[in-house]
Amino acid sequence: MTAAAMTRPTQASPWATAGRVFEHRARQYRRLYRASLFGSFGIPALFLTAMGFGLGTYVDRTPDTVLAGVSYVQFLAPGLLAASLMQTASFEATYPILGGLQWNRIFHAMAATPLEGRDVALGNIAWITLRLTLVGTIFAAVIVAFGATRSWLIVFAVPVAVLTGLAFATPIMAFTATQRTPDKFAQIFRFGLTPLFLFSGTFFPIESLPTFLQPVAWLSPLWHGVAVVRALMLGTIGDQPLLAAVHILVLLAITFGGALLAIRTIRERLKRG
């Protein structure tokens, strides 16, 4: 320890302080990225092969007015992209967050330094955004390799899918900060995400559902996400641009609302110790 000559950094901006939390998460990831990236290629390839081509062969044999000339794999790919980011986001907003608050308690270590609850929340959201972008980009590359997109607009489909994931990540993170055990996470996945995964237009158009059930889709952030991602990848985004804008606004509203809530619950949790 050298004497007083040290340079003590002055007060940093909220961006900088949240960035330090982000840096920590990135440093953790350096140990895992090989296995993690490999999985990111494997899962989409498996799904597209099994569902898109395996199941798709049968679907494509039946003339159908809803799919209107789109092959099943092209219909399915956007749904899988958005749904897969929903799942990645939900995982990232549960176990690693509870870990930092409850198990290794690294978020408490952060709160003892100039960082605070807001930095922990925003730094983690920033990290999840990067994670989703990586996973989403790889997924999109696999889709392109499978010839399952009709439009170069898939480039914009990735950020929309990332936003879809964030609309799950931020409210779930807010909930995670109120928990001391992971007991309720399984329920979120089982009773929350699985139905959404199945009934948000991922595998079949919601028009195939009974009419009274269709409005329920509006409550699913995944449905909003799938609708825009699919419109971009099928090149039909120009048909209903206003509707697409509404979908995006819904996702943005949920994401921001969730982020504000997450800042609050994480802050409270860190105060309680």
């Binding site: 003590r8 950094p9 920590h24 290794n104 690294i106 270590a109 003892a112 330094t113 100039p114």
Partner: peptide, 15 residues
């Protein structure tokens, strides 16, 4: 907090 050194009762190291 920028000028404190804190050793909490429970370890908060990153395993």
């Amino acid at each position: 907090r920028g000028r404190l050194g804190v050793v909490p009762q429970q370890d908060t190291l990153d395993n």
